[in-house]
Computed example of a mutant assay.
Amino acid sequence: MPAIVGAIKINSVGSSGVFHVGDVFSIAPKSSNKTFSGAGSFNTGNGITVSSYQSATNTFDSDLSDQNIAGNL
C-alpha cells in the first residue's frame, strides 16, 4: 500500500547508504573496505590497559583488488 510522505530533508548519504521512499521489494547495498590496525586497536570499555612494547603493522598489499563487488548483484 503506497504511503503519503511529507517534507524530506537529506543532509548526506554515505557510499553504502540507501535512501528510499515508497514500496520496495529488496534493498541490498554493497560496499567493501580494508582496515589496517596495530596491536591494541579497536579496544573499547572503561579502564583498558594495553601494553604493546613493539608493534608494527604491515600495510604492504601486492594485489590490485581484494573484494570485487562490481557486477555482484
Rank of each mutant, 00 (worst) to 15 (best):
A28Y: 14
V13A: 02
D23A: 06
K30H: 12
Q67S: 07
I69V: 07
L73G: 09
Q67H: 10
K34S: 02
T49K: 07
S12V: 06
S26Q: 08
S31R: 05
I69A: 03
G71V: 01
D23V: 05
A56H: 08
T59Q: 12
G17Y: 01
N11K: 13
T49C: 05
F25K: 09
M1E: 04
N68F: 07
G17Q: 00
P29K: 06
S41W: 02
V18E: 04
G47F: 04
G17V: 02
A39C: 15
F42G: 04
S26L: 14
F25G: 10
A7Q: 13
D61S: 13
D23L: 04
Q54H: 10
V13R: 05
S32Q: 15
S52N: 12
N72M: 11
A39E: 10
S55N: 15
A7I: 12
V13S: 04
I10D: 10
N68T: 04
V24I: 15
P2T: 03
S15R: 15
F42A: 14
I69T: 11
N68C: 14
T44Y: 00
I8W: 04
G40Y: 00
F25A: 09
I4R: 01
G47D: 06
S62R: 09
F42W: 13
G45N: 12
F19P: 01
S62N: 06
K9G: 06
D66C: 03
F36R: 02
I69C: 01
S62Y: 07
S32W: 05
I69G: 01
L64S: 13
G17E: 06
S16G: 15
T35C: 01
L73M: 14
N33M: 01
N11C: 11
N58G: 07
F36V: 00
A70E: 13
V24N: 08
S37H: 05
S32Y: 09
A7S: 14
S65D: 12
S15F: 12
I27T: 05
V21Y: 01
S51N: 06
Y53R: 08
P29R: 08
